[in-house]
């Protein structure tokens, strides 16, 4: 088995992936269901009575938005989720994870208050989507995005007992959510700007952001997006045979 698949299998067996995968899958299924009913979390379809598109983006609900965030961002949050899980007493784990989700979700809810109207103002269409995508790539290459990515996986201590455990988990959520918003915000506009194929575009953006997040922290500077660096490092390179010792 390839080491990548094996690492995923190991994480699954240890239980560290199950929760996040189930949350993400659930969010994707709900998104697909809403998409099918013409109530998806995209601008055109977001107009609750206009499945054919063309409705104003401002009609996108907060629930739709957070659903989209849950589907896209949960896989990226796995190391933080595991940190809180491991750091909590067995009987408190679900409380702590709930607090983590609240802290993280609050950051994205605040971002949604700005980004949803912004998407509405920008409207839908392929030229608009292409322009946002280009701006998103440029943003990913910027030092400020790198600064934010460096902080996405930073962990803090979690108090083991009582309300202090919830407080610390909430703070951990905000600590991850803030930089996450800063690093990813323009990318979230892309799915809302495409006239059709919302789910596919959302998935593509998720994969790109996942590859970005796999990149190691680096000094903030203008440079190629770490998603491309990660891809380059994952592609086997031609190397010559190493002669046996002696």
């Amino acid at each position: 088995m390839s080491p990548g698949l094996s690492a995923l299998q190991l994480a699954w067996r240890r239980g560290g992936l199950r929760g996040p995968v189930l949350v993400a899958l659930g969010a994707w299924l709900l998104l697909a269901y809403l998409e099918g009913r013409g109530q998806g979390a995209r601008c055109g379809g977001g107009h609750h009575h206009a499945a054919a598109g063309g409705g104003p983006c401002a009609s996108l609900g907060l629930i739709d938005w957070l659903l989209m965030v849950a589907a896209m961002m949960t896989p990226l949050l796995v190391p933080i989720i595991n940190h809180v899980w491991r750091s909590s007493l067995a009987r408190r784990r679900f409380d702590s994870l709930l607090a983590l989700g609240l802290g993280y979700g609050a950051c994205w809810a605040a971002a949604g208050a700005v980004l949803i109207p912004a998407a509405a103002a920008l409207g839908q269409g392929w030229p608009t989507a292409a322009a946002i995508a280009a701006a998103s790539v440029a943003w990913s290459c910027s030092p400020i995005a790198q600064y934010a990515r460096n902080r996405c996986h930073r962990v803090r201590g979690i108090h083991p007992f009582g309300w202090a455990a919830d407080r610390d988990s909430l703070a951990q959520g905000a600590m991850a959510g803030g930089p996450c918003v800063l690093a990813c915000w323009p990318w979230m506009l892309i799915p809302m700007s495409v006239p059709v194929g919302h789910a596919g575009v959302t998935l593509a953006v998720t994969l790109f952001l996942f590859l970005e997040r796999l990149g190691e922290p680096r000094k903030p500077a203008w440079r190629v997006s770490p998603a491309l660096t990660t891809l380059r490092l994952l592609i086997p390179r031609r190397t010559s045979t190493w002669q046996p010792a002696g």
Binding site: S2, P3, L5, S6, A7, L10, L234, R237, S240, Q243
Partner: peptide, 18 residues
Amino acid sequence: GDAWKNGPVRKFEMPGPD
């Protein structure tokens, strides 16, 4: 485990005398 034995996903690399 395969993740250790065949890993990491990104291979380690070293120069040879050549």
